[in-house]
Every structure is written in C-alpha cells, then in structure tokens.
Design a binder for these strands. Structure first.
Lengths: 192, 192
DNA sequence: AGACAGATGGACTAATTATGTCTAATTGTC
DNA sequence: GACAATTAGACATAATTAGTCCATCTGTCT
C-alpha cells in the first residue's frame, strides 16, 4: 500500500464514524479533520471536496463489509447459517447505520445521491455471493431448489429483497434479527 | 401542572436528547422542533431563544436527576450502598453526557456558560443530601465519623470531589464505576 | 355562526458557519 | 541546505441558522 493510500485510509477510518454520527450535512470538514488528527488544509490534500471524501468513504465501507461477507460465507456451518451470518454482517454494516435517527436518514439520502452506484454494486455482489453459496450447496447435494423451480440467483435475490422489506417494516429495532431468523428458517425448511 | 408547563416539558424532553447528541451549537432549533413534533415557530411561542431553551433544559435535567438522587438515598440498603447508587445516578445523568466526544465537550462548555448556577446548585444540593444521609446514619449509630475528625458535610464534599477527580482521570469509560466502587469500599472501611 | 387562541408554513434579515482556495511559515527527511 | 508534506490563518463565497413577522388554518367555546 502506498503512503498516499495509507493516509487516505486513516482519514476515512476517522471520517466514517463522524458521518454515521452526524450525517453528511452536519459532519463538517473541520470535524473530520479533528477526528483524523490533521489540519483542515491537509484534508484537501487527500480529497478535493467533501463529496469526494464521502464517496471514498462509502467505497471503503462497502469494500470492507463485502470482505466480511465473503469471510462469513467461507466460514464454518451449513449453507443456511453461513448465509444468515453474512446477511447479518451486511445489515449491521450497511443498513443499520442508515435507520433510526433523522441524521441517519439524511446520511442515507446523501449516500443515494453521491454513491448510489457503490451501493447497487455491493448489493449485486451480495446477491452473486449468496447465489454462489446456494449453487455450491446444491451441487454438493445439501439442498434442492427443484421443488421451488428457482435458480440460485433467484433465491439469493429474494433473500436480499427480504432484508430490505424487513428493514423497511421493522427499522433498526431488535425485531429485525428476529424476523430475519424466521425468514431463514422458512428458507431452510423449504429447500433442505 | 398548567397547559403551558406541559407543553414546555414536552419540548424539553424532546430537546434534551438532541442537545446531548449534537451539542449546543449543532443542535438547531429546527432539529429540536422536529424532535418535538412541532413547528419551529411554535418553539418560539414557548421559549424566546435557543439559550433560554437550553437553560430550561438544564434546569429540567438537573431537577429530574436530583429527584432520582433523593429517591436513591431514601431507598433500601445501608448508607453506603444508598450513597453509591445516588452517586451513580448523578454521574450517569449529569456527568457522563459531557464526557467522550467533542460534541459532549462543547455541550459541557455551553452548560458552563449558560447554566453554571444550575450546575453548582445541584452539586451543592448533592453534597447536602449526602451529608444528611451520613448524619442520619451517625445518629443511628451505624457509622462513626469520630476517627476521621470530620463532619458529615466534609465527608460528603470529599465524595463529590472524588466523582470529579475520577471522571477527570477515567473519562466516561467503564473504569469510572470500578474506581467509584473502590472509593466507596474505602469509605465504608474507614467509617463503619 | 362567529369569536378566539394556539399552531403552522413561509418569507425575510442579519449573523454565523462551512466550503474550498491560497499563501507564508513550519516541520521532518533526505 | 534542498525538498516535500503539513500547518495555521486569511480569504471569498455559498449555505445555514436564529429570530421575527404574518397570513392562514384548526379546534374550542359561546
């Protein structure tokens, strides 16, 4: 990793909690510089604008989360528990921060405006990873999608859609995990 | 309670978390109005300025906390555990919110500038309440301050000073409770 | 119905704050 | 000393905010 990237990463690591805490608008460049322990002028040496910094932060957050998702899917347990863990990671890192307070909502809007492509790419990637996990499990004979008349990608799409739906219904409350577990039991029962 | 007071209380209950979360400066009147579910114009029907609203909020927070402190001191257990609970309440409600983030520090500064008298009065009240509890316990023969050559008010003053000292040393971390408990054991051993 | 009081959205000004740029000075490194 | 990175600070401009005002609306009381 170059010196420049290390510096940028350090800034983004400091900036992300500030954005999550205050939203995009209320997180000033001065706040972020203070959190990173550098001057405001230095911030502009690494990023040309607040929007560019935010976008880089979104990219970093998504990349880090997707690495964790991959690790979860490569971990131990049957395909259902691995998917459950992966989905929980995705929700905790990339959905929960945008639910609850007015600032969180504002942050979500900012992300839609400035980094929609990043979010959509990560979502597509998640579907692809889940589909691959399901496909592998089917090849290994551990699950059967025949009775559903669905391809792995279709099932993966439904899982991700369910995350959105449950989030929309339950917000960030504790019922999210509950509902998600119910959904996973449903899935397990259907295709085991 | 008058209609006017009920409205004001409702606003303050909504405003306090906003101040705690964002500090004084970053908590806008629009944020507070939104949190209270009223219009910004209505906010100015109850409070003439942001500073007046903040001061009223500080008064309310201190009053509520002192009621809890009194309840703790009137509760069950020996004088040490009651004092320990009372001190914990005071710390959780009136000290912890001002420690940690930069916003919390800014909030503390605002409170010093706009409601220093409220804070000092509450602190004096806490000392008086602790002194009364110690005095009652001594009258009942449960503790003895003779070996310390100190009056109840002196001991109460040291306890409150210890809160400040430990807070200053440990911030808002989990070590605060630990250190406070150690201090209480020390007190218990000395005057039981 | 009509009078009345409180609430609201919107417009408005003045003051404050934020963004982004620039420069001169400072620091640490080769 | 040369060099690159960092910094504080000043700066212009854009965006927010506090506080005020008003026309309008809503619910209540008579």
């Amino acid at each position: 990793m170059s010196e420049r990237d290390a510096k940028s990463d350090h800034i983004l690591d400091a900036a992300l909690p500030v954005f999550v805490r205050h939203g995009f608008r209320k997180a000033s460049m001065a706040d972020i510089a203070r959190a990173a322990g550098i001057s405001r002028a230095s911030l502009y040496l690494s990023f040309n604008s607040k929007e560019e910094l935010f976008r880089a932060g979104s990219i970093r957050a998504h990349a880090r989360t997707m690495r964790e998702v991959e690790a979860a899917l490569a971990g131990a347990g049957d395909v259902f528990s691995r998917i459950e863990t992966a989905v929980a990671v995705f929700q905790r890192e990339l959905i929960a921060p945008f639910v609850g307070s007015p600032d969180a909502t504002e942050l979500f809007d900012a992300n839609m405006a400035l980094a929609k492509d990043i979010m959509l790419a990560a979502r597509a990637r998640l579907i692809a990873l889940l589909a691959q996990a399901l496909s592998d499990a089917e090849t290994a004979g551990r699950i059967s999608l025949g009775s559903l008349q669905a391809r792995p990608a279709d099932v993966a799409g439904v899982i991700v859609a369910a995350i959105d739906g449950i989030k929309h219904a339950e917000g960030a409350g504790p019922k999210f995990a509950e509902d998600m577990q119910l959904f996973m039991r449903l899935l397990r029962t259907a295709i085991s």
